[in-house]
């Protein structure tokens, strides 16, 4: 466990020194700038738009980090041969994979946490400057605690995307890993369409194929509760935890597969 922790902290240090936090500054500037602009242009919709924008930005910035750092976690070590000295130490290959994954999840956690704080700060400010009459027209309070539910599921989704990127990078090139991860991210977001596929095709084979794909591909649309939260609709705790459990199971399967493949790989 200690080896996993040391590897994870080293990944975190690498992301800090590779200037990953710059995206947080960009996020904050984008959020604050747009909030002031939108406050001038829209009537009563500004808080809703800020919430939409914040959650979407957290998701997209996180996606970039998850894919672009995730695919490099293993392949960069192998290409540059820094893995040679590392694997000669008393650590196993599964520990190496677990450490790399934990390190990137830590980076993502810090990112999502900072973005959440920035979002609440901007929403708090808007709530403070608006009149009580105006606030009465909002569907949900400005700094709504329910937003944390959306952020939580965004974080689990990013963890899953990171596991996908790491899995692909254990056996394919960085470019192919990025393409496959992004492809699965897009497919995963439209996964529910596959469930209804059998109602629109006549071919039983195609319907069967779509059903298999529906069960194999990650259902990323399940992690998207942004609309409900922004419009003040309830998100049940049961749904939150069952979706998180689904994400955890998928992540565990991907990591185990990554460890299995990586443990058998030759570093020529």
């Amino acid at each position: 466990m200690r080896a996993v922790r040391h590897i994870a902290l080293n990944v975190f240090r690498e992301s800090i020194r590779d200037r990953v936090p710059y995206n947080l500054v960009l996020f904050a500037v984008l959020l604050i700038g747009s909030s002031f602009l939108l406050a001038q242009l829209t009537a009563g919709q500004d808080v809703k738009i800020i919430k939409d924008l914040s959650l979407a930005a957290a998701s997209i910035f996180g996606l970039f980090i998850a894919i672009f750092i995730g695919i490099g976690l293993v392949s960069k070590e192998v290409e540059r041969r820094s893995i040679y000295s590392l694997l000669a130490k008393p650590i196993s290959r599964p520990q190496f994979i677990a450490g790399k994954y934990a390190g990137l999840v830590l980076t993502l956690a810090v990112n999502v946490a900072v973005m959440t704080v920035a979002m609440y700060a901007v929403l708090g400010y808007l709530t403070w400057i608006e009149s009580p009459d105006f606030k009465a027209s909002w569907e949900a309070p400005g700094p709504d605690p329910a937003l944390l539910k959306a952020m939580f599921l965004i974080f689990i989704e990013l963890m899953l995307v990171t596991a996908l990127a790491l899995f692909f990078s254990t056996f394919s090139s960085p470019l192919l890993s990025a393409a496959l991860t992004f492809g699965l991210y897009v497919a995963g977001n439209f996964n529910t369409e596959l469930r209804n596929f059998e109602h629109v095709v006549d071919s039983p084979a195609a319907a069967w194929g779509a059903r298999v794909l529906y069960h194999v591909l990650p259902d990323l649309s399940a992690f998207d509760v942004k609309t409900q939260v922004v419009h003040g609709f309830p998100v049940a705790a049961g749904y939150l935890w069952s979706t998180a459990a689904y994400g955890a199971a998928y992540i565990a399967a991907l990591l185990l597969a990554a460890m299995y493949i990586f443990s058998r790989r030759d570093f020529k």
Binding site: N10, R13, E14, R17, D18, R80, R81, S82, Y84, S85, A88, K89, P90
Partner: peptide, 18 residues
């Protein structure tokens, strides 16, 4: 055994940022 060995790879490469 790995605890008791040392290894220098050919043309070693380490982490740039450290």
């Amino acid at each position: 055994a790995r605890r008791r060995i040392g290894y220098l790879p050919e043309n070693p490469y380490f982490y740039d940022y450290l």
